[in-house]
Computed example of a mutant assay.
Amino acid sequence: MIIFDNISNYQICVDLDNTLIFTDDANNQAYLYAINEFLPNIQFDYDGRITESIILNNLNQFPKYILSSIIELKQKCFSNFINLTYINYHLLEKLNVMKTSSVLYLTSCGKKSRVERVLIHHGLHDLFSDIICNEKKFEIIVNKTQDINKILVFDDDKIQLDMAHVAGIKKENLFLVRKENIYGFEKIYD
């Protein structure tokens, strides 16, 4: 296992949502608010993180303009619920150690404006050398680095970690972050 305080010259990729900062409550409350504004007579129940694709799939009986309006309002009103987000302090502690000798990237599939708002809210905007909000985030990092063996990825989504591996990042450098794990993250491949 990698000793995190003894690494240097690594490229560290950190996801935002439910990895560095737990955002599900704020995200879901913003979506529920937006749904209620446009569809006040329906009860929307979903167990898990509500996403744009969940809205489009689970409410597909409603006109597209209504669904687009819900998604747009969610993006606008997210800041009203930002106080429901909270930091993964265990991971943040490790990142603060690693940033002295490595480059930290915030890598997310989220909208960059929302990602930046959350980082600013928690005073973490200056923690990262770059913020990459793109579905091809791992390919971008692989293309930026000279040594693909010195990339670490922290994410709460195994599918995203699988995508990092497909992009060329070694399995032993992928860490699954779990809210319920007392240590904050674990290796998923041994």
Rank of each mutant, 00 (worst) to 15 (best):
I70M: 01
E72S: 14
L56I: 12
N41P: 04
E172F: 12
L152M: 15
K74W: 07
D15F: 07
G168F: 04
I151N: 02
K137R: 15
F138W: 00
F44R: 07
S101Y: 10
F138M: 00
I131M: 00
I169D: 02
N41V: 02
I55M: 07
F78R: 05
H125P: 00
C133H: 08
D147R: 08
V153D: 01
I66M: 03
I2Y: 08
I151F: 07
V153I: 10
Q11E: 12
Y10S: 11
S8F: 14
E139Y: 12
I50Y: 04
I42V: 15
K64A: 08
C77F: 12
V115N: 00
K94I: 14
I55N: 03
I120A: 14
I188Q: 07
L161I: 03
D24Y: 08
D162W: 08
I50A: 01
E72R: 12
I3N: 14
K112C: 10
L95T: 06
D126T: 15
G168A: 03
N9F: 11
C13R: 01
F185H: 09
T51Y: 04
G48P: 05
Q160K: 11
T85E: 05
D24M: 11
H122G: 07
V14E: 00
G168K: 01
V97S: 12
K76V: 14
V153Q: 02
R114S: 08
K150R: 15
N28P: 02
I141P: 00
Y189D: 01
E72Q: 13
F81P: 00
E180M: 10
T51E: 03
F128C: 05
S101K: 13
N41E: 13
D155W: 04
L161W: 04
S8D: 13
N41F: 15
